[in-house]
């Protein structure tokens, strides 16, 4: 019997957006073009055009142990090549940024292979083999999961997700890795760790408030959808909590 994931509860647009981002059968809307070279520059792990540094020889060139798991799991391209494990980390503003930390992790787990995500309040990191990472990062930047003003790639000093926005609508970043240019386009002037780039990397224009509200995955009673209004979502959380409590208190069937 084929299992059909439900992804999550809720009747609101926030809940629907969450399900869409998680569902690998849903095509994420591509909104902007960012070149492979530009992604590599912002990631800051290797110089564009340079060879991928390796952590081990290509799998085809090394003796693989006789392991049934390895026969079951097809390695990713990065794993096959022996790439290093590197990261991309996003900081998402609470003012209706289209994706949010746990949402990113859930979506990535459904959509990507060979990843190790980490979820905090002000940032979400995903680690994987370097050439896989570049593909994943490109998707995360080019699609509806990204907004140039409210989402940014930050390796360290991520402070900003909960702060008020700057007058120009940009999320606070003490390193100002990306800036809103006079032409209305957001441009990275530093890589995600804060090292100045040789040239600017444009990631497009900020989305407008209406679009953000319609595509956000965070509840917010001031600028978006109130959590309280999605009764199904709240009831579901209460149900999960209640069942966990009862099981921990008295682990037997009634």
């Amino acid at each position: 019997m084929a299992y059909t994931p439900q992804y999550g509860p809720g009747t609101s647009i926030v809940a629907e957006n969450r399900r869409n981002q998680m569902n690998p059968n849903h095509d994420l809307e591509k909104i902007r073009d960012v070149t492979d070279e530009d992604i590599v520059m912002v990631l800051g792990h290797r110089a564009p055009g340079s060879a991928y540094p390796t952590a081990h020889p290509p799998l085809a060139e090394q003796q693989e142990p006789d392991c049934p798991m390895r026969k079951l799991v097809t390695p990713t391209e990065g794993a096959k090549a022996g790439d290093r494990v590197r990261y991309v980390q996003f900081a998402d503003s609470m003012f209706n940024a289209p994706s949010q930390p746990y949402q990113r992790t859930y979506a990535e787990m459904y959509r990507f292979r060979g990843i190790d995500p980490g979820t905090l309040s002000g940032r979400q990191i995903v680690e994987c083999r370097e050439r896989d990472l570049e593909q994943y990062a490109k998707l995360l930047v080019e699609t509806e999961m990204f907004d140039p003003a409210l989402v940014s790639m930050r390796g360290a000093t991520v402070h900003g997700h909960s702060l008020r926005l700057s007058e120009d609508g940009m999320q606070f970043d003490m390193l100002q890795r990306c800036v809103l240019s006079d032409d209305g386009v957001v441009k990275y002037v530093k890589d995600q760790i804060g090292v100045p780039l040789d040239r600017e990397v444009a990631v497009g224009k900020p989305m407008d408030e209406e679009w953000l509200k319609a595509h956000s995955t965070i509840f917010h009673s001031l600028v978006g959808t109130a959590y309280r209004d999605d009764k199904e979502y709240v009831e579901y959380i209460v149900r999960v909590h209640t069942l966990r409590t009862k099981y921990g208190f008295m682990p037997k069937e009634e």
Partner: peptide, 24 residues
Amino acid sequence: EGWSRLGFFGYDLQDQCGSANSLA
């Protein structure tokens, strides 16, 4: 669930399983 975030990694460990031990 509301804000799709909580605290740092430690909150994953402690608070997402706490329901089950709170009355135990």
